[in-house]
């Protein structure tokens, strides 16, 4: 039964490692709660509306503030220049068949 014990030991180690990682994630979130609270108050105080991820174009820096047709607004039929333009899915148009 040596191999069975070896396999059981391997699975127990992996499950234990995952449990430790999960607990460390939970405690990490808990420990960072004061930091999150500061960032939340920052959003409120500075009236921020978007995250500073994609700074390559205005419609990717502030996707929530962009025009409905922002990726194509620079000139007629212009294609989307920026890879991050793909971050926003096409809007759901009510009543339109897709």
């Amino acid at each position: 039964m040596f191999k069975t014990r070896l396999f059981a030991g391997f699975i127990i180690i992996e499950v234990a490692a995952l449990a430790v990682l999960y607990l460390s994630a939970a405690s990490g979130v808990h420990l960072k709660e004061p930091e999150m609270s500061l960032k939340r108050s920052m959003v409120r105080a500075m009236k921020l509306t978007d995250i500073a991820f994609w700074t390559e174009a205005r419609y990717t820096r502030h996707p929530s503030q962009a025009d409905f047709f922002a990726p194509f607004q620079d000139f007629p039929s212009s294609v989307d220049h920026f890879p991050a333009g793909s971050v926003v899915p096409p809007p759901q148009i009510h009543g339109a068949k897709r």
């Binding site: 994630a25 990490g28 500073a52 994609w54 700074t55 390559e56 990717t60």
Partner: peptide, 16 residues
């Protein structure tokens, strides 16, 4: 990241 020159360091909070 795409083409963003300025991109914050990837340090996601471990929400699972």
């Amino acid at each position: 990241k795409g083409w963003s020159v300025l991109f914050p360091k990837f340090e996601p909070m471990p929400y699972i």
